[in-house]
Write a protein that binds this DNA or RNA. Structure first.
Length: 774
DNA sequence: CAGTGAGCGAGCTTCCGCTTGACTT
């Protein structure tokens, strides 16, 4: 039995560290937090000073009991969770969950997984920092109170099963507000003049492209300018050369890795993290959830060695980067290859591509600057005071550019940097052509997953471990949808001066094309409006930053954590109560117009099951009729005509086997209903025009499929069936499903067998825990 | 994966932050 038990957060880390320490040490992992607030009720005792009710998380019971056993036999238990707020709390929870004896428990920390760092940590143990734990408790309790009081309010006032929280609600706000900016954006156009000159040089003819810095607001002004240039003489007035340099970007953090993988590889945020996890687990890269730019001395040394070997000594420049991100906790290193001499690694194409990106970024960050020479050429026009400008850039020394250049989110990469031909001051230029083309102002870009993460990081909301899950949550709640939009064609004017003649042309370009961008849904916009109206403080972009400041004060011992919570909770809770009493149902109801046949009002709003249209007033004697919106429609844009179409359902389209067939649109899209059974329409079927014959086809297809999936049926009781599911055979009784015990042949089950199996609680459908009411 | 299918009636839903491997309906 080992004398020492070391507990870290991640199993891959445990494996590495075990190699560094001798055989007297066993290294195990807690798999992150082992305790959390109870999920029943609030999990916090409001009346008695906000005492948290912690429980061992259900998925951690096994880990905890194993660690408990090992800790009993160990002489010393070393708690080596990360050195940040959450890590400190993990150690504290471990003390409680494992019932550790204080005398044999030691807390150690390290920021990098290197042998020296770990041996050094072992030499310098300390106790648990209770103040830091308190800061974490404040963070945890605040998030619980906000989430578990706001969400139920939404269920009552907006729609069931919605959610709100300190992080997700602000993320949705960003997307809703960006969409509003875009909607209110006024597109204007102006004319940009570009001139092409022919240069005779020793090497033959080359081109020089120059631009007019000024843009013309109207076509008339642009034409007037071109007319002036017909008989003009063009002379080089000035040639300015300036040295410039470019520096490499710092190594990757979680957020910048997600951004670059999105731009360069087209990965979603979730995909990047999944692939990075695989690389981490196979020991190829360091930890992938980090906000630190730091590289260990070992890594710096390896990088230097690698760069010298591959490119030579003059490409080396060792740098240490420091983070500018507020609230960064820097418990880990930056994301880097474990061994810099592996230029490639990974099992599949995704892993290889991501690894290569990390390798290049890390190596480049330790390379010398690129040396540039920037040239600006000014060209006089004899007939006007305006001057043309040509810009050029020559790379004198490539430095880090040999390996890697960070891309940008900028969608219209304007500055084209070309190499200029040899030119002399006073030289007269021969105009080939001059073009004035119409350019339009561009609305602010919509967020994609990665650029939203970037913005969240800037605001200090969310952590490296939560960026990907948060983005998935707001999509799962249907606050936000990720999709492509096809652009529209737009005409623009082009005026050309060539051979001393001016001609005009109209050209066409694609505009508004969007790929994998985040759009707010009706529900997202409505919930955002509700929260902004009643809880503007939580929705404030600075809310997290201001509570973070208080958490820091708690960690410094200047503030008691439950006092901070009390100050927040008092006004917050009375707002909840007040809103509960006074706010009406928040449905976003909008009057579209009147039904021309009946004269009844047509409304659009959010109902229990999402966006819908309503015919007739709620207060009128005749109950109003309802119909759900199609998935492709929105409250914002639906027209009266489209709304009226929706009331054509359910459509009776004939009879089949003596029962009528109807078509309608439900929660899960358009369907055919026959004999109380439902059959989904295909995407290619139009619910407004689908005919009886096609409906029968769909019914027969479904029947065939059901037959194939049925293993056993019983004449005596048709509500009991043995069916083939995606996880194998199961028993269905009415709407409930039951597991079949192992070793039972489903083909041979009798009705009695089925009923018996259904009575055994072991086989009952799992529905989670029932909530206990006090 | 495939299946689900209402307009109110039960019972349920929910947060953020650590971490991976569950093993379903």
């Amino acid at each position: 039995m080992a004398k020492n038990l070391v507990i870290v957060e991640s199993p891959a880390k445990a494996k590495t560290i075990e190699k560094f320490l001798g055989k007297d040490f066993t290294v195990k992992s807690s798999f992150g937090h082992v305790m959390d607030l109870s999920k029943k009720n609030l999990g916090v005792d409001i009346e008695n000073g906000f005492i948290p009710n912690y429980e061992i998380s259900s998925d951690k019971k096994k880990v905890v009991s194993e660690l408990k056993k090992l800790s009993k036999d160990a002489e010393t238990v070393w708690l080596a969770s990360d050195e940040d707020r959450e890590g400190e709390a993990i150690s504290w929870h471990l003390v409680n969950a494992l019932k550790l004896d204080e005398s044999k428990t030691k807390r150690i920390v390290f920021h990098e997984i290197t042998k020296t760092a770990i041996l050094n940590a072992i030499e310098n143990p300390r106790g648990i920092n209770k103040k830091l734990v308190d800061a974490q408790q404040a963070r945890r309790v605040l998030d619980r109170l906000v989430g578990f009081e706001l969400s139920p309010l939404l269920w009552k006032k907006v729609k069931p099963a919605l959610s709100a929280g300190r992080v997700q609600s602000v993320a949705v706000r960003l997307i809703v507000e960006r969409e509003e900016e875009i909607k209110n954006f006024k597109v204007t156009s102006s004319y940009k003049v570009t001139a092409k000159f022919e240069i005779d040089s020793k090497k033959g003819k080359t081109k020089l492209v120059a631009e007019l810095p000024k843009k013309f607001k109207t076509k008339e002004e642009a034409i007037k300018f071109l007319e002036q240039c017909i008989a003009a003489e063009f002379t080089i007035a000035k040639i300015e050369k300036k040295p410039g340099k470019k520096s490499p970007a710092p190594p990757f953090t979680t957020s910048t890795l997600q951004q670059e993988a999105s731009r360069k590889l087209g990965f979603s945020v979730g995909n990047t993290m999944r692939v990075a996890q695989q690389l981490y687990e196979s020991g190829k890269i360091t930890y992938m959830r980090t906000d630190s730019l730091n590289l260990s001395n070992l890594a710096l040394g390896m990088a230097k060695e690698q760069i010298t070997e591959l490119y030579g000594e003059k490409y080396v420049k060792t740098r240490k980067f420091t983070t500018k991100i507020k609230g960064a906790q820097e418990a880990h290193e930056a994301i880097r290859p474990t061994y810099m001499n592996n230029k490639t690694a990974g099992k599949d194409a995704s892993q290889k591509k991501l690894y290569e990106l990390i390798w290049k970024r890390t190596i480049a960050s330790q390379m010398s600057e690129a040396q540039l020479e920037k040239t600006v050429v000014t060209i006089d026009i004899s007939t006007t005071k305006e001057k043309l400008v040509a810009k050029g850039e020559v790379i004198k020394f490539d430095g880090f550019l040999k390996v890697y250049l960070e891309s940008t989110d900028d969608e219209n990469g304007e500055d084209q940097k070309n190499v200029l031909p040899p030119l002399n001051k006073g030289e007269k230029l021969q105009l080939d052509e001059m073009i004035a083309d119409e350019r339009f102002t561009k609305f602010p870009p919509r967020y994609n997953e990665a650029s939203l993460v970037k913005k969240m990081e800037e605001l200090g909301i969310g952590r490296p471990s939560t960026y990907a899950p948060t983005i998935s949550t707001i999509q799962k709640r249907e606050y936000v949808i990720k999709e492509d939009r096809f652009g529209k064609n737009r005409n623009y004017d082009v005026i050309i001066l060539k051979n001393e003649k001016i001609t005009e042309k109209v050209k066409s370009e694609k505009t508004g094309f969007e790929k994998a961008k985040l759009f707010p849904t009706d529900i997202g916009a409505l919930v955002n409006k509700f929260l902004l109206q009643y809880f503007d403080n939580i929705m404030d972009y600075n809310f997290t930053a201001s509570v973070e400041k208080e958490f820091d004060e708690i960690a410094d011992g200047q503030k008691k954590w439950n006092e901070m919570i009390k100050e927040f909770y008092g006004p917050f809770h009375s707002k909840i109560e007040n809103t509960l009493e006074t706010a009406k149902k928040f449905s976003g109801e909008k009057l579209l117009g009147k039904d021309p046949k009946t004269g009844l009002n047509i409304f659009v709003k959010i109902g229990r099951f999402g966006p819908m249209v309503q015919m007739g007033d709620a207060e009128s004697e005749d109950k109003p009729r309802f119909a759900g919106l199609k998935k492709t429609q929105s409250i914002e844009t639906v027209t009266l005509e489209e709304a009226l179409e929706l009331f054509k359902f359910p459509r009776n389209i004939g009879e089949f086997e003596g029962k009528e067939i109807t078509v309608a649109i439900g929660r899960f899209g358009p369907y055919v209903k026959h004999n109380n059974l439902f059959f989904s329409l295909q995407k290619t079927d139009d619910p407004l025009s689908v005919i009886r014959e096609r409906a029968i086809e769909i019914i027969e297809e479904k029947r065939q499929k059901d037959k194939e999936n049925t293993i056993r049926e019983f004449d005596k009781d048709p509500t009991v069936k043995v069916l083939k599911g995606r996880f194998g055979a199961y028993i269905k009784i009415k709407t409930k499903n039951f597991k079949i015990p192992k070793g039972t042949d489903p083909e041979k089950l009798s009705l009695e067998d089925c009923l018996k199996i259904s009575e055994d609680p072991k086989n009952a459908p799992k529905k989670g825990f029932k909530r206990k009411k006090k």
